[in-house]
Simulated assay, not measured.
Amino acid sequence: MIELRGHHLFCLLGYRGMGYSPAYVENMTRIHQSLRNNPGTWIQIVKGPDHLCDKFPATGEYHCENLTIYDRDQDILNKMNLEIGQILKWEDIESRIREYITPSDIQVVCKTCTWRSLGVCEEGIQEIHQGKGLKEVH
């Protein structure tokens, strides 16, 4: 089972192989590709640092504990009708994205995210709506 916090549900949609450090990228790629290849993987929604935060570099501010990140997590969980502690399959998360989320939601719930300007998260949501699943990362 993979533990994920709210905003990482969106980050995985836009993931294109970039990250905060080589170790972070390696970890995120492994989790991303695991979900892509096996959408029946069980996910537990957690509050605070998750399996992606495990490899956040120890240099600079540890934003995984930033209060604005917790707010973003909760905003996304609210939009997707999910709760902390809930366990469901990745394919069920994709289904909820199709039901509750539009690409333009990124501009609102992720307005302070430094990755938002790349536009990849909106693209990822659109691809989920089209039934494509997570994009392959090389």
Results as ranks from 00 to 15, higher is better:
Gly40Tyr: 02
Leu52Cys: 06
Ile101Arg: 03
Gln107Pro: 03
Asn78Met: 08
Thr59Trp: 14
Cys53Leu: 03
Thr102Lys: 12
Ser104Ala: 11
Gly119His: 06
Glu122Lys: 14
Gly119Pro: 09
Met80Ser: 05
Ile93Gln: 03
Leu67Met: 11
Asp105Met: 12
Ile101Glu: 04
Asn66Leu: 13
Asp54Pro: 04
Trp42Met: 13
Phe56Ser: 05
Ile43Gln: 03
Thr68Met: 15
Ile106Phe: 05
Ser117Leu: 11
Ser117Asp: 10
Pro57Asp: 08
Arg98Ala: 08
Gln107Ser: 12
Lys111Ser: 11
Glu122Asp: 12
Ile43Thr: 01
Cys53Lys: 04
Trp115Val: 06
Pro49Asn: 14
Asn66Glu: 15
Leu52Lys: 02
Ser104Gly: 10
His63Thr: 10
Thr68His: 15
Val46Ile: 02
Glu65Cys: 13
Ile76Trp: 02
Asp92Ser: 14
Gly60Asn: 03
Ile106Pro: 10
Ile45Thr: 01
Gln74Lys: 13
Asp71Trp: 03
His63Cys: 07
Pro103Met: 07
Tyr62Ile: 07
Leu67Thr: 08
Pro103Cys: 15
Asp71His: 09
Gln44Met: 01
Asp54Val: 07
Tyr70Glu: 05
Lys89Arg: 08
Ile76Lys: 01
Cys53Pro: 05
Arg98Ile: 09
Ser117Tyr: 09
Glu83Arg: 03
Ile87Gly: 06
Thr114Met: 13
Ile87Cys: 11
Gln44Leu: 00
Cys113Ala: 14
Thr59Gly: 09
Pro39Tyr: 00
Gln74Leu: 12
Cys53Val: 00
Leu118Ser: 12
Gly48Cys: 02
Ile76Val: 08
Ile84Ala: 00
Ser117Pro: 07
Cys53Asp: 01
Pro103Tyr: 10
Leu118Ile: 03
Asn78Glu: 12
Asp105Trp: 11
Lys79Asn: 03
Thr41Gln: 02
Thr112Pro: 07
Glu83Ile: 01
Gln86Ser: 00
Asp105His: 12
Cys64Pro: 10
Thr114Ser: 13
Ile43Trp: 00
Tyr100Lys: 04
Tyr62Phe: 13
Gln74Phe: 04
Ile43Lys: 01
Val120Trp: 15
Val108Ala: 11
Lys111Ile: 04
Cys113Met: 10
Met80Asn: 04
Val120Leu: 15
Val108Phe: 12
Thr102Phe: 05
Asp92Gly: 10
Gln74Ile: 04
